[in-house]
Each structure stands twice: as structure tokens, then as C-alpha cells.
Amino acid sequence: MTALLSVEGLGISFGGLKAVNDVSFTVRPGEIVSVIGPNGAGKTTLFNMISGVYQPGSGRVVLGGENVTGMAPHLLARRGMSRTFQNLQIFQSMTVLENAISGYHLKERGPVLADLFGLPSSRRRAAEAQAGARELLARVGLDRAAEREAGNLSYGALKRLEIARALALSPKILLLDEPAAGCNAVETEEIDHLIAEVAKSGVAILLVEHDMKMVMRISNHIVVLDHGEKIAEGDPATVSRNPAVIAAYLGTDAGTEAAHADG
């Protein structure tokens, strides 16, 4: 199958620092591609460029055959891209349900006058979005917290809420930046299953995760970054044997985990 997303020679500098330099890879529908690398390797920066939050300094992002380099995030959302954030970006003072509904924005939006006058068309759009959001909350185990103010939830619950909100867009490609960070073993396994399930339905997944066991278990393909450069890529077994990868991780917790995960 042809690539849904292809990243070609992407790079960006902050001041003198080359945060990401000449990184290329592709993601196909239904595939789980993980981006790993030590802290500060440039993983989040790469996500920010792909999702239009940062303007790339060089290179191209091609989505479904269309050049979408530097395109605004809300336009990428219309083209089927959706993401979560490493540092939570939750609508804190809205309820859990409202957070999930906001993921339906593109489906529920309509004429502003209909919204002001509370016309039946406006209510129907909102009701449909709400029904979908409730289903998604059930899927991530948050249905019972639906009416609570999001700001009061635990970190792990908010991570799952972000995933639900991202799934609400019915994306073609989903970017997950450390979805399991701060989650306990049980929650991590649940997220693990959820990601696999979503990929199975044909959604392309681009994943950044420090939990090496999880990465090795669910990825089809792994891209390794270090100091902004791609130092290796391949399937989990190949990557974890790669001497450059082991060297990059040496001395860090993740390095030992990576080595163990292979054995």
C-alpha cells in the first residue's frame, strides 16, 4: 500500500540549535510507526512540524499525496490529521464530555445564527456530537466522569481524554506524543490495546513513547532520533540490535529497557 504520510527531509532550527535535521520516513494506513530517542532528541518538535504547529525550516510533509508543509493545524484536521500532546492540552474548565465533544467540531459546526437562536438544526448537530462523544468516553473508560470538570481529573485520565478527543475527528492519521506517560501499568496496557485497535481499523499511527516495552510490542516500524538526526529505522528487532541506537541510549534508563526488550 502507498504511504499516507510521508515526511521528506524535514528540519528546523531554534537560534543556532538544529532541533530536527533532515528527517524522512513514511507511514501507511493501519501501520504503527514509532519515533523514539533520548530526551531532547527532537521528537515533539518533529510532531509540531508535521501537525502545522511549527513551520518547518526545510523539507516537505505530504499527506495523502498533497503537499501540506506548514499548513495550519485546523486545515490539517480537515484532511484527517489528529494529535495528542505530551504536555496535556486539555480544556480545563470545560467538562470531560465537552472536551470530547470539541473533537467533533468539524462535524457539529454550523451557521452561527442558528447557534445563537438555538434553532433545531443547531441542537441536532450538538446532540449528535454528544452521542458520539459519550461512546468514545466509554471506549477510554471515562464515561462515568463525563459531567466532571476536566481540570479535576487525574493525569492518566486526562491522557485518555486527549486520545478520545483526537479519535473524535475520525482521523486518517493519529499522532500520539507519549500517550502512556504518567500512567500506571494497567492504564498503559489499556492504551496499548486501544492504539492497536485503532490501527486495525485502518488508521495510520505515529507514536512517540518512552515505554520501550510498549514500543517494541506494538510498532510495525521504528524511527530513531538523536540530536535531531535520524540515526536508525526498521522493525523493532532490527532497531534494538542497532549499535548506534544502543550507544545513543547508553547510560539512560530507556537504553537498558531497550536492550532488555529485545532479549
Binding site: 504547529v53 493545524p73 500532546f85 480544556f91 480545563q92 478527543r165
Partner: peptide, 13 residues
């Protein structure tokens, strides 16, 4: 939503 987090608002479209 955009009041709560502009970047998240943009990424949901």
C-alpha cells in the same frame, strides 16, 4: 475551547 488551549483548539479543526 480556544480560550482553554489555543493549540488544542486548532488541532481539533
Amino acid at each position: 475551547a480556544l480560550h482553554g488551549s489555543e493549540v488544542a483548539a486548532r488541532t481539533v479543526g
